[in-house]
Simulated scan of single mutants.
Amino acid sequence: MSDAYYLHLTDRLRDLIQDPEAFEDDRLPSERVLAERFHTTRVTLRQALAQLEGEGRIHRSNRRGWFVSPPRLDYDPTRDAGFNDYVKAQGRRPRTEVLLTDTRPHPPAAEALGLPLDRSFHHIRRRRFVDDRAVLCESLWVVPERAPQLLEGDFTGSLWGQLRERWGLTLAHRSLRLYSEAIHAREAEALGVAAGTAGLSVRRTIFDEQRRPVEYDEEHWLHNALCIAVELENSV
């Protein structure tokens, strides 16, 4: 069919998903049902669905189908608030699963923190959920000297809170790098999406008040899960 029909179909689907009662549990009908409903081919339908996915209006879950995307989470990467705190503050339900803990070298962390490339780190890999949807897969790399016996703790809550309470660390100096990415296979599997799905990468390096290296974080977010929101004030 023509590009004009594909754009027309996209508009019709966009209007449809704005109706909160159109679908049960926010799940769209199967592609076969939608194609029959709109008298179109699966190829044209997928063009329209891909357009809406790119806009962040719908998302696809492996082996489950298409869903209307929930409202984006406002996320300020410069704040000290933990994931659980800022998710709850927006009336949403957070949950965390710890996927792996170990101690080993990670050259990107060493390079970012100005340490020898063969330096070992305490590593914590987590999957985080908002309203039962996996939205973030993260790896945290902590300098062992800053937090001995770190891996004996509970990591379903705030790691920053543990570093403050157990070792008296002040996370005083941070740098951030944010960029769009195609989510790699490992993170895609953890998030239940196809490899190559659009995502947002956040890289964070953290030093204490003495400028000692503390932590390097790698976050992989689904692109339609959040809105970067940073408030700034000009000093007079």
Rank of each mutant, 00 (worst) to 15 (best):
D3W: 04
D3R: 04
Y5T: 12
H8G: 00
T10H: 08
D11F: 09
D11G: 06
L13S: 01
R14K: 13
D15R: 11
D19T: 12
D19P: 06
D19L: 07
P20V: 10
E21A: 13
E21N: 14
E21L: 10
A22C: 10
A22W: 12
E24K: 08
E24Q: 11
D26N: 15
L28N: 02
P29D: 03
E31R: 06
E31C: 01
R32L: 09
R32W: 00
V33I: 14
V33P: 00
R37F: 02
F38L: 02
H39I: 05
H39R: 11
V43K: 13
T44H: 14
L45D: 02
R46Q: 14
A48K: 01
A48W: 01
Q51H: 11
E53N: 03
E53C: 01
E55D: 15
R57G: 04
I58E: 03
R60D: 00
S61Q: 15
S61M: 11
N62K: 14
N62I: 10
R64H: 12
P70Y: 04
P70K: 09
L73Y: 06
L73S: 00
Y75D: 04
D76I: 06
T78R: 11
D80M: 08
D80I: 06
A81N: 09
G82V: 03
G82Y: 02
F83Y: 15
Y86V: 05
V87L: 03
Q90Y: 03
R92V: 06
R93A: 11
R93C: 06
R95P: 00
V98H: 06
L99F: 07
L99G: 07
L100T: 09
D102A: 14
T103Y: 00
R104Q: 14
A109T: 09
A109C: 10
A112H: 05
L113K: 05
G114T: 06
P116E: 12
L117F: 01
D118W: 09
R119Q: 15
F121E: 09
R128C: 08
V130L: 08
D131R: 06
A134G: 05
V135H: 08
L136P: 04
S139M: 04
W141G: 00
W141E: 11
V142I: 15
V142F: 07
P144I: 11
R146H: 00
A147G: 08
A147N: 05
P148I: 09
L151G: 09
G153D: 12
G153M: 12
F155Y: 11
T156Q: 05
L159D: 08
Q162M: 15
Q162S: 14
Q162P: 00
E165H: 13
G168A: 04
H173Q: 10
R174F: 00
R177T: 13
I183Q: 01
H184K: 10
A185P: 01
A185I: 05
A185C: 01
A185T: 06
R186D: 14
A188N: 04
A190M: 11
A190V: 10
L191I: 09
G192Y: 05
G192A: 08
A195H: 06
A195R: 14
T197E: 07
S201Y: 04
S201R: 15
S201M: 12
V202C: 12
R203Q: 15
R203E: 15
T205E: 09
T205Q: 10
T205F: 02
I206S: 07
D208S: 08
Q210W: 06
Q210H: 14
P213D: 05
P213K: 02
Y216V: 11
Y216G: 11
H220A: 13
W221M: 01
W221H: 04
W221G: 01
A225W: 03
C227Y: 05
S235A: 08
V236K: 13
